[in-house]
Design a protein around this nucleic acid. Structure first.
Lengths: 330, 330
DNA sequence: CTGAAAGCGCTTACAG
DNA sequence: CTGAAAGCGCTTACAG
């Protein structure tokens, strides 16, 4: 019962070879019944557990997947991580997490050091050369970069922005504002383009204010909005956090939502529903995305070159709540 | 430049032994200057990167820590994870995450399979026998269980509850309500006891409603509160989510916060500040807790038996915002 | 069905 | 300063 019990200890106790112990544990059918029982008894008596590090080295696999995200403290990822972990655990895989902003050198080793079998990438702003140098299956989730040689799974961001715009237009809003995400971000770009295209198609005015997905940027935009002449009555924010920041400060400035301004968010985070007023927003099925992303990666690990994993776009939908209403009559 | 380059490939190219390559990389000072340069050139030419799995097996360490949390989708953990990862990354350690509700068997192997060097435990409700069977350094963070043979790091939950009660009492509230956390949870128990003790000391009425930290439980309590006769004017919730749920539904029922009822939360999550009304709450320094917890574990890994890691209680403080105000005059 | 031996890819005493 | 050899703890062809 002391510290480390190795397979040789079990073998000695059972009076068999280590090969037999190994087989009895991994492929019971390939060992005689009596032998198997002897081995199992010895395993029990010693409390033996195989050393995963040794097994994995021998089998040249890590039994582990790595999640790489641009900011681990972003609560948006929580549910995605949970779903990935659940799926991985069911497949006998361990989950590692790392911030993708750890620096070029560390990032480069990740794909080569034999500690992960595959990577789920939630960041589209890493140097493509780096990402493409990894000799591991990679799947892009939520965010993507066309230069990466890896399949992606994400909702239809452009169409989602269109839904938001049409929802506002249908409520009679003719003067819209988009609070954008960071310029370099593919999600921000796609949502912005979707906003502009849909606004043009609907024949409504479409202004844009810069932002970066954070509550602070939404709050800042609220003050710019309040200070502007001919204030837009419909605001589409690039993220829920941004929307909550906007609403929060707009209300503190004495405006009514949705009485004077309607606000649409993006993501449908946990608090969207409980906020006052409850937030109309684009739903991102994060649990589903995480689960499906993990499944696809696991499929890739199984080596299904015969069954190549394709990029997928998940249809988006809008959840209508209280933060949007009829355009105020002038 | 093909797939897997091993140390022997580098050794062959440089015309030295694998031992020398290993030393040139890990302890450059113990190798001649010329040899070192030859090796480095060969490393560069081949793009060699050491196989961490092999190195770790040989050195009998995993260079990895495991975070175990009761529910990965709980956004409360995000910032803690980020802080741990940062600290671990600086120390050259990988971070694994796992839900601690994965089942007894998987949980048992975690502490024995050689894939982690140490564990950060955010769950106090695992069977102590299981936890104590792990042959790894463990540190308890935020939550704890006195039966675990492991140091813990957490804020002073009882004192924190006392701060909330005294804050409400100072505002003139004589009739308080606590919406508790799940009965089996040590945090819930400690906060409840702190609430009751402080209320008694302050000589104010102290009712309790069951809850489970979720927004739903807070929302449910709101309806019970509204339906009660002689409604408490000061409410202390066991978590921010619970508080937001409570406020949200109480306002939808037409009550004013803090005009008719003051509400205090617990945790100081990101949204506490942006909520309408902004939430008065007990601050949990999650980034600091994560960082310090990781550092302590890393110290334990270094084998500082000479410098035993003690359990620590971090002083709590209350952040006063808008959700609390003077008790309504009857 | 079982065992002896090789090998996964490294590092590290041990010699020299 | 450098190399040959052993060994981390397993699994897996290969024989029998």
């Amino acid at each position: 019962m002391s510290d480390k019990i190795r397979i040789s200890d079990v073998a000695a106790l059972a009076g068999v070879s280590t090969a037999t112990v190994s087989r009895a544990l991994a492929a019971p059918g390939r060992v005689g019944k009596e032998t198997r029982e002897k081995v199992l008894k010895a395993v029990h008596a010693t409390g033996y557990q195989v050393n995963a590090a040794a097994r994995d080295l021998r089998q040249r696999r890590a039994r582990s997947i790595l999640i790489l995200a641009p900011n681990l403290s972003n609560t948006f990822f929580s549910r995605i991580f949970a779903a990935i972990q659940e799926e991985a655990s069911d497949a006998g895989l361990t989950v590692q997490i790392s911030d993708s902003r750890i620096g070029r050198e560390k990032l480069a080793t990740l794909g080569h050091d034999g500690r992960a079998d595959g990577i789920i990438l939630l960041d589209g702003e890493i140097d493509p050369e780096l990402v493409n140098s990894w000799r591991l299956p990679v799947i892009q989730l939520c965010e993507w970069n066309p230069a990466y040689h890896a399949p992606s799974l994400a909702i239809d961001n452009a169409a989602a922005a269109g839904l938001a715009v049409r929802h506002l237009a249908d409520l009679g809003h003719r003067n819209l504002l988009h609070i954008a995400g960071p310029a370099g971000n593919i999600l921000a770009q796609t949502r912005l383009a979707g906003f502009q295209d849909a606004a043009q198609a609907a024949g409504v005015a479409a202004a844009v204010l810069p932002g970066d997905f954070t509550m602070e940027s939404g709050a800042g935009a609220a003050h710019q909005w309040a200070a502007s002449t001919n204030r837009p009555t419909g605001v589409f924010c690039a993220s829920d956090e941004c929307a909550l920041g906007f609403i929060s400060d707009v209300m503190r400035l004495g405006f009514d939502v949705p009485g004077q301004v309607s606000v649409v968010g993006f993501d449908d985070i946990e608090f969207a529903d409980r906020f006052n007023p409850a937030l109309t927003t684009v739903h991102q099925p994060r649990a589903t995305l995480g689960r499906d992303g993990a499944r696809q990666l696991i499929k890739m690990l199984a080596g299904g070159v015969t069954d190549p994993v394709l990029s997928q776009v998940v249809p988006a939908h809008l959840v209508t709540r209280v933060s949007t209403g009829k355009a105020p009559t002038v």
